[in-house]
Simulated assay, not measured.
Amino acid sequence: MSLRKRLLRLVMISFLTPVIYLLGCQSKLIYHPNPYGTAYERLLQHAKGERIAYTTSQGKQTAFYIPPRTRTSGLPQTVWLCFGGNGALALDWLYFTEYWEGRFAYLLVDYPSYGDCEGAPTPDRIRKSGKAAVEALAKRLGTTPQDLQPRLALLGHSLGSAAALMVAEDLDVRRGVLLSPFTTMTEMGRIVLGWPLCHLNMHPFDNRRTLRHVAGRDGARFVIFHGTEDEVIPVRMGRELAEAHPQVVTFHAVPEAHHNDILSLAGDKIGRAMAEAAPAAP
């Protein structure tokens, strides 16, 4: 083999190796599922929560319903659908929900393969799982998804902001709070992998597109919180999403907050924003 051919072969191998790796292991780079331990069961019992079981193409799924601490007859005034980051579990929200308004109920949603859920996550599967979780909750509450819809609001952190916006798009939910959202997964790939490898993205979450769609609906109102020291998703991404819809989206930079401590540092402000953004009682 000539020197030229050897060099060409070496270049091709050098280029194809990361490509093949990314195509084969991309899900492991994006999603970090974890199982539940016994401590979570105690948290669920303390919150008087219950499991909501349902099934999707990925198999058996489990979400968690946390009723309002302030007991009222009939349906809760507001049900917050909560979606965590790529390394979080749905029940992690319980560390914060007990400090937020007692009139709120919560549906805490895991992704396929997370917690007690079967399957494997993709954008489409996460979208369908969120929608199916709402349908299962409506059945549990003795109502329909259509009657529950005006009472729904969305809360998402990081990857969960993308999940929340997809559900908002599908179920016509017009109120929500987003924490540390990215613009698109491809742009996140550019930060981590550079160009052109970022365009090998097989999980095309696009918050720019979904927020544009949701923000165009009458009565839409969203709040974005983003840490100024976020080392995972740059604060400029959250600011860009908000600035594209100044009449609908309010942006709050959280000084000194990183990616994973924003809830701890801004929990009270987030709770107040949820109270202000919650849909009016039907």
Results as ranks from 00 to 15, higher is better:
Phe182Gly: 04
Gly160Phe: 10
Ile191Arg: 13
Thr144Cys: 03
Ile126Tyr: 11
His157Tyr: 12
Met188Lys: 04
Thr144Gln: 11
Ala163Gln: 09
Leu159Val: 05
Glu187Asn: 11
Leu152Gln: 00
Met185Phe: 05
Pro150Ile: 08
Gly130Asn: 05
Leu171Asp: 00
Phe182Pro: 08
Thr186Met: 12
Glu169Arg: 13
Ser158Leu: 10
Arg190Glu: 14
Lys131Trp: 09
Ala163Phe: 04
Ser161Ala: 14
Met185Glu: 02
Lys131Thr: 06
Glu169Ala: 15
Arg125Asn: 15
Val167Thr: 14
Leu159Met: 15
Leu159Asp: 00
Leu152Val: 05
Lys128Val: 09
Ser158Phe: 03
Ile126Lys: 14
Gly156Arg: 02
Thr184Met: 04
Gly194Cys: 13
Val134Ser: 07
Ala138Arg: 04
Ala163Asp: 00
Arg125Glu: 14
Asp170Ala: 12
Trp195Gln: 11
Asp170Ile: 05
Lys131His: 06
Ala132Thr: 15
Ala162Val: 06
Ala168Leu: 03
Ile191Asp: 06
Ser158Met: 10
Arg175Thr: 05
Asp170Leu: 06
Thr183Pro: 09
Ala153Asp: 00
Pro145Gln: 05
Ser158Arg: 05
Ala153Asn: 01
Gly194Glu: 05
Gly189Trp: 07
Thr184Phe: 12
Ala133Gly: 06
Ala133Glu: 07
Val173Leu: 02
Phe182Arg: 02
Arg127Phe: 08
Pro181Ile: 11
Gly142Asn: 13
Ser161Trp: 02
Ser161Met: 10
Val192Ala: 15
Thr144Ser: 15
Gln149Tyr: 04
Ala163Pro: 07
Leu155Gln: 07
Arg175Pro: 01
Thr186Glu: 08
Leu155Pro: 00
Glu135Gly: 11
Ala138Asp: 12
Phe182Gln: 08
Gln146Lys: 14
Thr186Cys: 07
Thr143Arg: 08
